[in-house]
Design a protein around this nucleic acid. Structure first.
Lengths: 143, 143
DNA sequence: GCTTGACTTAGAGTGCACTCGAACTCCTAG
DNA sequence: CTAGGAGTTCGAGTGCACTCTAAGTCAAGC
């Protein structure tokens, strides 16, 4: 698999894949006779896992740490487990904070419900008005 | 309340508070006779709410949008509600993704459990060894 | 009266994670 | 045989959200 193909399958750009290799997040890829990277399927699993770490807010330097342990083989398994366990705690904390913030948002939105209700009543009082008065709003949403 | 006091109470730095005012995220603060910002309690609620938006990943430019609507008074309530509703959807999506990633982490960590078990057995085979071999780990945790 | 420390401004610098540009090589299809 | 498209390297540029510096003002305590 060439880099463009891999990019398509992972959602990363070819630029990003090269960048990840450069910094050591991806192993140095085998090149074909003309020097182009040739990937096998196994890289997909690793990239997917990196995606999970990224999605949960792990900074690249910590992923590098994990990647480095991984390259050193089975002797580092305990270290890797510990790294992931620590990260898991952070993810749990994040989940808790996010849930709390979601409640705050719900409350805040409920506080605007009066406005919504008043507007609905106002709309209802007008004859034949389409719902979704929001259809036009996106244009100029950048200030 | 002076800026230093506010910084202490919000966990932001004075630098950040001035930066937020500069970009319009905080309203222009009243100054005392010597030109120093003097805040009243009400700013705390706003900063706390901004903190929730930030914690849930809202970019500053969107907070600015919300702040701008807010400054324009009650006429913008429907717009604000909608902005928050859209953001709430993103937060829900984030929560879902985070939960999924947590499962992946759990699975991965469980996969290392064998290592843990082997190490425990090894430890158990040694006479009188303290648990928590991790106590020293923090030193040098930065590579 | 002088030091200390908190404040003021404008603007420059930082760290992160990409993202892109330039100049090049190589393979394939017409 | 040549045009196009995908790849290569190296290094510079971008966007975000701060974070800090420099040079100065001001009020309180010794």
């Amino acid at each position: 698999m060439k880099i463009g193909q891999l990019a398509k399958r992972t959602g990363l750009t070819a630029h990003t894949i090269r960048y990840y290799e450069r910094i050591g997040l991806l192993p140095y890829a085998d090149r074909d006779q003309s020097g182009q990277r040739d990937y096998d399927q196994s890289i997909l699993t690793w990239i997917e896992f990196l995606g999970h770490l990224k999605a949960t807010g792990m900074p690249i330097r910590e992923m590098l740490h994990y990647a480095a342990l991984r390259e050193q083989g089975p002797a580092t398994e305990a270290g890797r487990r510990e790294l992931l366990e620590q990260h898991r705690e952070r993810v749990r904390a994040q989940l808790a904070e996010l849930s709390a913030c979601l409640l705050v948002l719900d409350t805040k939105i409920a506080g605007y419900a009066g406005t919504s209700k008043r507007m609905k009543e106002y709309d209802a009082a007008l004859p034949e008005r389409r719902k979704q008065p929001t259809a036009i709003k996106r244009a100029g949403s950048r200030w």
